[in-house]
């Protein structure tokens, strides 16, 4: 009897192990079906300037999967913690040419491309790999919503803005595929695994 039970447990383990091997990342957000085709949620319009003062649009990111967060350089609250986790991710993916990091400032008035450049230089990161971008404030707030990040002006919050510290993984088609909480370092390893999984899925597709 005991042996049977063990056998079943073993089979169950095998079954779940196999399932894990075929794992693909979910599409986050609403999926609608149109003419029998599934249409997944996509992030909004990116029309921002990088720390090198070059324009960045969704089209520029089509060849890459990217990791995104929303921050501002003078943020006294959660941003340094989130930046630390972004840096951890940056170090993990530095050898993978398919992956970029994009940090959107929600404080464009103060965060000019020049200031973002200083920030990136002080972090010691490659400007082509990790883009720090600034754009229209309201458009950025709206864009943040499509990344499922809350960002808005709030005089009572430290630094004058309230925002969540989520770090998001976006695929080449602009779908949100995974996220971590930038304020909780224990959630970062799972996101790093998901980045590898997503990156490999394009390799096997031959894209």
């Amino acid at each position: 009897m005991n042996f049977n039970f063990l056998g079943i447990a073993f089979l169950f383990l095998l079954f779940t192990a196999c399932k894990n091997n075929q794992q693909t990342l979910p599409f986050l957000g609403e999926t609608i079906v149109e003419n029998g085709k599934e249409i997944h949620h996509k992030v909004g319009q990116i029309n921002h300037y990088t720390q090198d003062s070059t324009l960045l649009t969704n089209k520029d990111l089509e060849q890459y999967i990217y990791v995104a967060d929303f921050f501002f350089t003078s943020c006294p609250s959660i941003c340094p913690k989130v930046a630390k986790e972004m840096l951890r991710i940056y170090n993990e993916v530095s050898d993978n040419p398919n992956v970029k990091l994009v940090s959107f400032t929600i404080d464009p008035k103060r965060d000019t491309p020049e200031r973002l450049r200083l920030y990136a230089e002080n972090l010691g990161v490659d400007h082509k790999k990790w883009l720090f971008v600034t754009g229209d404030k309201d458009a950025t707030f709206e864009l943040a919503n499509t990344f499922f990040v809350a960002a808005f002006e709030d005089a009572e919050s430290p630094g004058g803005f309230d925002h969540s510290g989520k770090i998001l993984l976006i695929d080449k088609e602009g779908h949100v595929r995974s996220f971590s909480e930038g304020t909780d370092p224990s959630t970062t390893p799972k996101l790093i695994d998901d980045i590898k999984l997503l990156s490999e899925s394009y390799n096997t597709k031959g894209k």
């Binding site: 006294p76 609250s77 959660i78 340094p80 913690k81 930046a83 630390k84 840096l87 920030y119 230089e121 002080n122 972090l123 010691g124």
Partner: peptide, 15 residues
Amino acid sequence: ANCHMEDGSGLGELI
């Protein structure tokens, strides 16, 4: 700890 981190490691050359 928000800036200097709980382990006091700071952040790059920023903090």
